[in-house]
Amino acid sequence: MQPQRAAMPSEVDGSPVAARTALLREGFDAGNPYFVNEEEVRLTGTRLIAAYNRTRTRTGQVIVWLTVRRDTGRGGHSSGPAFDLLTDTAPQ
């Protein structure tokens, strides 16, 4: 199995939802495929956290840069199906 990047359909009208950042859009508009190795996809998922950083040098010049950190997701969630569930019933 080799997952591939694709646009997700909107829950509202079914139109494709564009990626919010350039991290996921690189080469997508040109039609270039982007495959991910199966071992890189964890069951807990992956979160990308972007943050702007700001500092001043000794001369007072302001420097701003963007960092992106990869973190572990929260994990898979169950939609709640209950198959083969045993429940107590009142005797007849």
Rank of each mutant, 00 (worst) to 15 (best):
E26R: 13
D88A: 15
P3K: 00
E39W: 15
G31C: 09
P16W: 04
A30P: 01
E40L: 09
D13G: 03
Q61S: 05
T44W: 02
G76E: 13
E11S: 12
P9D: 13
F35C: 00
R25H: 02
G14R: 00
G60N: 08
E11Q: 09
S15Y: 04
S78Q: 14
T57F: 10
L86N: 06
R69H: 06
G76N: 11
N32L: 09
F35N: 00
M8T: 00
G31W: 03
V64G: 01
G60P: 07
A50W: 11
T87S: 10
E38Q: 11
A6K: 07
G60V: 11
W65Y: 09
L24D: 03
D71Y: 07
N37Q: 05
Y34D: 06
N53P: 00
M1Y: 09
A90I: 15
Q92G: 01
D88K: 11
V68W: 10
T72A: 13
T46Y: 04
V12Y: 00
T21I: 02
E40A: 14
A18R: 13
I63M: 07
T57C: 10
Y34W: 09
V62M: 14
A30V: 10
R70T: 01
R5P: 02
A50Q: 06
A82K: 15
V17P: 00
D88W: 14
N32D: 02
G76M: 14
W65L: 03
R47M: 15
D71H: 13
E11P: 01
L85Q: 09
Y52L: 10
G27S: 07
L23R: 03
D29M: 11
G14S: 01
T67N: 14
S15D: 05
G45Q: 04
D71P: 00
T59H: 13
G27Q: 10
G80H: 12
S10L: 11
V36G: 00
D71W: 13
L23N: 04
R74C: 02
V12I: 05
M8D: 04
A82E: 12
N32C: 01
R20K: 07
S79F: 11
T21N: 12
S79K: 12
V36R: 05
P9V: 14
T44I: 09
L66M: 08
N53T: 11
T72R: 15
E39Y: 15
